[in-house]
Design a protein around this nucleic acid. Sequence first.
DNA 1: AAAAGAATATCCCATAATAGGATATTAACA
DNA 2: TGTTAATATCCTATTATGGGATATTCTTTT
Lengths: 83, 83
Amino acid sequence: MKKSLKTTEHLALLKTLYSLRVGAGLRQSDLAKLIDEPQSFVSKVEQGERRLDIIELRVIVKALGTSLEHFIKEFEKNINETK
Amino acid sequence: MKKSLKTTEHLALLKTLYSLRVGAGLRQSDLAKLIDEPQSFVSKVEQGERRLDIIELRVIVKALGTSLEHFIKEFEKNINETK
DNA sequence: AAAAGAATATCCCATAATAGGATATTAACA
DNA sequence: TGTTAATATCCTATTATGGGATATTCTTTT
């Protein structure tokens, strides 16, 4: 399965993640600290350079104060808005 | 972020995926065909040998006739039942 | 507008993960 | 038990990732 980068879905994912972080008033280094990763990790994720499996996404989303379920809803919403 | 294998979350994920496929009455090769991947891919996924990002998970879950949102609910349910 | 500071992106490359056809195992059952 | 169906494992060339250091870009401040 090819690295699903730059597809509508992937762009929507990045957008959803970014909005959530910024909406939480955190900078990459803040989130990084919360999940015990370097800032470059967060940057790569937001850049689509690094992919996240659901478990990882769950950790991040929770660190940002949301549930995975809610995140997915936002994600789907963004997919529809984009296409 | 380490390969989240064999954690409660990961086991719950595999369980959720497996149940969904079997529940749909499909064998690995059937699902494989639906998502245009070899049978070994599906096996690896179910074995926890291959991780899925949300985009990929979404494709699979849809091929199995479910929404990502519903899948996540089942997933969370399984996490709680396991721990 | 330029300097200073803050936030984010990119580099590098050793290490780890993945692809996928072929083959081995295990399960089902006549 | 022999046979077929279903799933797991092998192998290794290719691709992805880790993460500290550094470069870039964005914001302020004066």
